[in-house]
Design a protein around this nucleic acid. Structure first.
Length: 607
RNA sequence: GCGCGGAUGGUCUAGUGGUAGGACCUGAGCCUUCCAAGCUCAUGGCCCGGGUUCAAAUCCCGGUCCGCGCACCA
């Protein structure tokens, strides 16, 4: 057995991996029969299983173990949701294409760079076109004039129509998060109106990328696993102690900006203490994520947390860290941990008719003096007609804002630019003592957001191994048993009815135990081992003639003694993928033993 | 969206203006008492659409897709 050579960091690993993925059924481009379409991939039998296992592992850790609830929202939502979330306006770019050299530029950037306009992105397109013509702006590449060239809006959301016609536009969600935020008013009920609570969702999201790249790393349809954790920013603290000792490799903004900056090896506890990670909540989830990534098979020597630079942070995030893995010398983003504040809930509160707050009861009710109005509608109605209700609103606002306005005989209010005088006696103005049991607060959101496809890719890439067995080259995937698509292969040593029958019995036993099993009787035994190595199956069971002989001896002795049949003591060989070591194990409790190994309760070496 | 380079069985690839070979894989059989062995047989292919030509997988144009660079990544 030669030593493993971890696949080195050149592009060749990715090339070999993509080829293996296609050939063995991990993933491949969709709709190949029709020429394919960019940015869409199908997970094959192995890939779908691996992806599902990773999602299960995520669910176990981030939903079940944390006591959070999982939902499953639609992938299409109608326009108002994205008006509120900011995706409709903020998720598009103005592109202008040079007629001479073909270079596409951001029209808003051109305007900002060459005129005194500052927020060109907020200008309507015709106006941007006018500005470009007026200032005779030119192509930054070749200098050709751009006056009169059309500016195009490119929104990264996929648009569709809900129902017939185009009366109700809808969009495929660009992130799963909005599906959680819009349901907050109901979800908070399920949490019995108590903070903190978390809601998870695993599902597809869609972005009409200009240029999908690097196989499943950047696609137009992808799977996210997101947790939105709602907290009271004043009183809720994470259980930092439970992750304080987790060792992490951090790449903070300060190091990225420094000429000789480097990753910092530290612990979550120290990083918080030293202020490297400013949000304890973000720190907590980094501390949860790191051991989880390690458990599903990400190489910790090729893993780090990188802080977003101030310029790359989304508008809603006060601090953001990415989990990154190294692939062929490049760091790719696998997850983002953002402190989103109250941005999303406030926006939906503003745009919708519902309440995106939590009522927080005081320890002791508070008594406050409050100025109120109780207008005399029999006066306001005839006086103001249809505007009466607006007058009431004005009075209410005014009372809350400036009670001294009600000190005279009459009070002045503005209504659509006109000033009206209203006798104070008709307003029902009063200063009352009121008892308040609590207040409505808008929770803050901490968002760990995982890209499942990129995790699948990373796990495969980091598991890719080439070594030599008995002078023969071998390729195998060193996948964790918990996530491997197939857990065990079962083979008859060679073509033989008896061996095959026994092997089939074992397959049935193992499947009954809930293990993912494959049966293979084609080709010599070595070939079959290599097939399973290449898809990352951790164990193989082989039935040989010893198995049959032991079984026959067993039967003979049982019938000779006249006793009840004893436990079957026949054995089979079990081979481990990484070492190719073999052990003979009893058939009788094979299912139990393998299941224990899969659960991590047993080690193959200790058998 | 632009530029450069690609596209031949499931995979990897050779190839020429006269419609294609190889290797691996896969399947059947033989052999075989544990690591891609050997033998026989079999399945399966020139990305799509135009053009030039007697004839195009090959040359030209357009498209699609892939890789890389630019741009983009709320």
């Amino acid at each position: 057995m030669s030593e493993d050579t971890a696949a080195d960091g050149d592009a060749a690993t990715s090339e070999k991996l993509v080829e293996l993925a296609k050939r063995r059924g991990y993933f491949f481009q969709s709709s190949g029969a029709y020429g394919g379409v960019g940015g869409f991939y199908t997970f094959g039998p192995q890939g779908a299983s691996l992806k599902g296992n990773l999602e299960d592992a995520w669910r176990d850790r981030f939903a079940v173990a944390e006591g959070n609830m999982e939902i499953d929202a639609p992938t299409i939502m109608h326009e108002p949701v994205f008006e509120a979330s900011g995706h409709l306006d903020g998720f598009d770019d103005m592109l202008i294409e040079c007629p001479e050299c073909g270079t596409s530029s951001r029209a808003d950037h051109l305007v900002e760079d060459n005129t005194e306009y500052e927020d060109a992105e907020s200008l309507p397109i015709p106006e941007v076109e006018e500005v470009i013509a007026e200032y005779e702006l030119s192509c930054p590449e070749c200098g050709a004039g751009l006056a009169g060239v059309a500016v195009e809006d490119f929104n990264l959301m996929f648009a569709t129509n809900i129902g017939p016609g185009d009366a109700q536009p809808g969009y495929l969600r660009p992130e799963t998060a909005q599906g959680i935020f819009v349901e907050f008013p109901r979800l908070k009920e399920y949490a019995r109106n108590q903070l903190p609570f978390g809601v998870t969702q695993i599902g597809r999201a869609y972005r009409n990328e200009i240029s999908p790249r690097r196989s499943i790393i950047r696609t137009r349809e992808f799977t996210q696993a997101e947790l939105e954790y709602f907290i009271d920013p004043e009183t809720d603290d994470p259980d930092l102690e439970s992750v304080a000792d987790v060792e992490v490799s951090l790449y903070p903004a300060s190091e990225q900006n420094a000429a000789d900056g480097d990753e910092i090896e530290t612990t979550i506890g120290d990083a918080v203490e030293e202020g490297i990670i400013s949000s304890p909540w973000v720190a907590y989830f980094l501390g949860v994520a790191k051991p989880w990534y390690e458990a599903v098979g990400v190489d910790m020597d090729r893993f780090r947390f990188r802080q977003h630079l101030s310029g790359e942070r989304a508008h809603y995030a006060s601090d953001c860290w990415d989990a990154e893995s190294e692939i062929d010398g490049n760091w790719i983003e696998m997850a983002g941990f953002a402190y989103r504040g109250d941005y999303d809930l406030s926006k939906h509160e503003e745009y919708s008719d519902d309440r995106f707050t939590i009522f927080k009861q005081y320890d002791e009710p508070k008594t406050v003096e409050r100025a109120t109005v109780d207008p005399d509608m029999s006066y306001l109605g005839p006086e103001f007609g249809g505007d009466a209700q607006a007058v009431v609103s004005e009075l209410e606002d005014l009372a809350a804002r400036d009670r001294s306005a009600f000190e005279g005989d009459s009070v002045e209010i503005d209504l659509e630019g006109e000033t009206h005088e209203i006798p104070v006696e008709k307003t029902g103005f009063a200063v009352e003592e009121q008892t308040e049991a609590g207040e409505h607060i808008t929770p803050h959101v901490v968002e760990p957001s995982f890209g499942v496809d990129r995790l699948v890719y990373t796990v495969l890439h980091h598991a890719y191994r080439e070594d030599e067995v008995d002078g023969e080259e071998r390729t195998y995937l060193d996948l964790e048993p918990e996530v491997a698509p197939t857990f065990v292969g079962v083979f008859p040593l060679q073509s033989d009815d008896e061996l095959e029958a026994q092997a089939n019995d074992i397959v049935a036993d193992l499947r009954a135990e809930g293990l993912s099993v494959t049966y293979d009787d084609s080709g010599n035994i070595g070939r079959r081992y290599r097939r399973q190595d290449e898809v990352g199956t951790p164990f193989c069971v082989t039935v040989d003639y010893e198995t049959i002989e032991e079984r026959e001896a067993q039967r003979a002795s049982d019938s000779a003694s006249g006793d009840e049949p004893r436990a079957d003591e026949t054995t089979v060989t079990v081979r481990e993928r990484d070492t190719t070591n073999q052990k003979r194990l009893p058939v009788d409790d094979l299912a139990e033993t393998l299941a224990a190994i899969r659960e991590g309760d047993l080690e193959f070496e200790s058998l």
